[in-house]
Amino acid sequence: MSGPLPDPRTPVDAVVRTAQYLAGIVSYEGLWPQLARVVHNFYGADIAAFLARDAGGEIRCLQCEPENTELAQVCAESAKQVFESGFLSTEALSLPDPHESILLPIGRERQRTAYVLVAAHRGRTPLPRETLDLYLALAGLIETTLDRIASQHRFLSMADNVPELLFQMVEQDGA
């Protein structure tokens, strides 16, 4: 494929470009900063954050773009209801400048939401339905990427064990 990349500011092209970009990610290393940059650059979010909840229920920020501890804390506070309900939420973030945001649950682990994506856009008007739909598509792409990486890790783990299994089978047959 040659030619210029699609303009990421158009909705369909943002999704296509995201899918192409995520297809190249093969490990968890550096995943969250890459995803935050995608949300910031391809979807035009002024703030992009990914949050996780540990076994004790504590919410921690995996990545915030731009990097800012206070901003990450505001996102974590807003994400509590999404972790509890498993449903997306739209709200204004409590920041000096008004920001309308969407908070999306991503992935499930042991019947709980694994991650929350926070994408905030500067302004007072609620995000249009088309923007919400784009973020829903993005959440699906991210979940697919996480599942693909997990599957690759399981396969590689099994492949690492094949020589040992073969050795054990040969030992048993030779005994």
Rank of each mutant, 00 (worst) to 15 (best):
E84R: 06
G30T: 11
W32Y: 14
K80S: 13
I59H: 10
I59Q: 03
D46F: 01
S27K: 04
L93T: 06
E65H: 14
L95I: 05
A52E: 13
T69E: 15
E84N: 08
G57F: 05
R37E: 12
A79R: 00
V26H: 08
W32M: 07
L62V: 10
H40V: 03
Y28K: 08
C64L: 02
R53K: 02
I59M: 01
G30A: 07
Y28D: 15
E91D: 15
C61T: 15
C64T: 15
G57D: 09
L62I: 13
L31F: 09
A48E: 13
N68I: 02
F87G: 10
A79L: 11
P33A: 04
P66H: 05
F83K: 08
A72L: 05
G44R: 02
H40S: 12
R37K: 12
E29N: 07
S89R: 14
S27N: 10
T90Q: 14
R53P: 03
C64Q: 06
L31M: 07
A45N: 09
C61I: 08
I47H: 00
V26K: 09
A92Y: 01
D54T: 02
L31Q: 09
D46L: 00
D54A: 02
A92M: 12
F50D: 01
L51V: 14
A55N: 11
L31C: 04
N41C: 09
V38Q: 02
F50H: 00
P33H: 07
R37W: 04
E91M: 15
V26F: 03
D46N: 10
D97S: 06
Y43R: 00
W32V: 03
A76N: 14
S89W: 02
P33E: 05
L35P: 06
L51H: 10
Y43K: 00
L51W: 12
G57K: 12
E91A: 15
A52P: 00
I59Y: 14
L71H: 01
K80P: 05
G56T: 09
E29G: 02
S94W: 02
S85F: 06
Q34V: 05
H40R: 12
A45H: 03
L31K: 05
Q81N: 11
A52R: 01
L88R: 08
A92T: 15
Q63A: 11
V74R: 14
A55I: 13
C75W: 00
E65I: 06
S94Q: 13
A79W: 00
S94M: 07
Q73P: 03
